[in-house]
């Protein structure tokens, strides 16, 4: 069987997800053994004309991004969104909560006309995305799952349940019992409850579960005497596109 040709692209993002890929110290050689990397700006030169799997990092936030992503989609058999920016728009989506002209003014000042900008979009809102590796930075564990599945010609399955399930399987003390806001109840699992396990709260970086009951989530915060406005801000941090217009 020929090795799948893999290309990796970055759009608007911090490139942390890609660096995260390079950080697979123990597994990097095993990963490379399965594939031919044909394009990866961060690690090599050159371009390729077609690829079996394209990994895409970052949100789409300029007209040029839109042009490029169409090209990537055309050349890729399978397109995988890597990390919160690519999957949901991520932190960049915070920009969408302000009028676009204000944002341009604030960031570029007088030169704003030199930098055309769009609301930060999830890759899936422009082209078809086949699979997601979620998280900020992307969850390594999930990357390996998706990667091995694709190499073996299988379809990776995305969990639908919330982070609470993973906390419970690890018998973690509930973050709410520690008096902190936690977005775990409405955030998609797959990270093995990484943050709550190390004593942090869930930031919601992996996006919302399908059909999240956000009204109930708000009630939970009220019941626990926590700051609801603060919680919405946190939810917005990674999920501005997903919760747009949800809270009146």
């Amino acid at each position: 069987m020929a090795k799948p040709r893999v290309a990796i692209f970055d759009f608007t993002g911090c490139e942390g997800c890609e660096l995260n890929q390079l950080n697979f110290e123990d597994q990097l050689l095993d990963i490379l053994a399965h594939v031919d990397i044909v394009e990866w700006r961060e690690a090599m030169d050159g371009h390729a004309d077609e690829y079996d799997i394209a990994f895409v990092e970052g949100s789409l936030s300029t007209p040029d991004c839109i042009k490029r992503i169409h090209e990537v989609r055309r050349k890729a058999k399978v397109l995988v969104a890597l990390g919160a920016c690519a999957v949901q728009g991520g932190i960049n989506g915070v920009k969408n909560t302000h009028p676009i002209e204000e944002v341009r003014e604030e960031v570029y000042g007088e030169d704003k006309y030199l930098f055309p900008t769009l609301p930060a979009l999830a890759v899936s809102s422009v082209v078809k995305v086949d699979y997601n590796v979620r998280g900020c930075p992307m969850t390594q564990l999930e990357f390996l799952k998706v990667f091995t599945a694709l190499v073996l010609g299988k379809e990776p399955i995305e969990p639908e349940h919330s982070v609470c399930v993973e906390c419970k399987l690890k018998e973690n003390e509930c973050v709410y019992a520690r008096g902190m806001i936690c977005l775990g109840p409405v955030t998609r699992a797959g990270c093995d409850a990484h943050c709550p396990t190390v004593g942090q709260y869930c930031t919601g970086c992996r996006g919302l579960v399908p059909e999240p009951n956000l009204k109930a989530m708000e009630e939970i915060l009220v019941e626990h005497g926590l700051n609801v406005d603060e919680a919405w801000k946190r939810l917005q941090l990674f999920n501005a596109n997903e919760i747009e217009g949800v809270r009146s």
Partner: peptide, 13 residues
């Protein structure tokens, strides 16, 4: 159901 976020905690504990 209106109050529930469907997190499954009640089952798991």
């Amino acid at each position: 159901a209106e109050k529930c976020v469907g997190c499954g905690t009640c089952n798991l504990v």
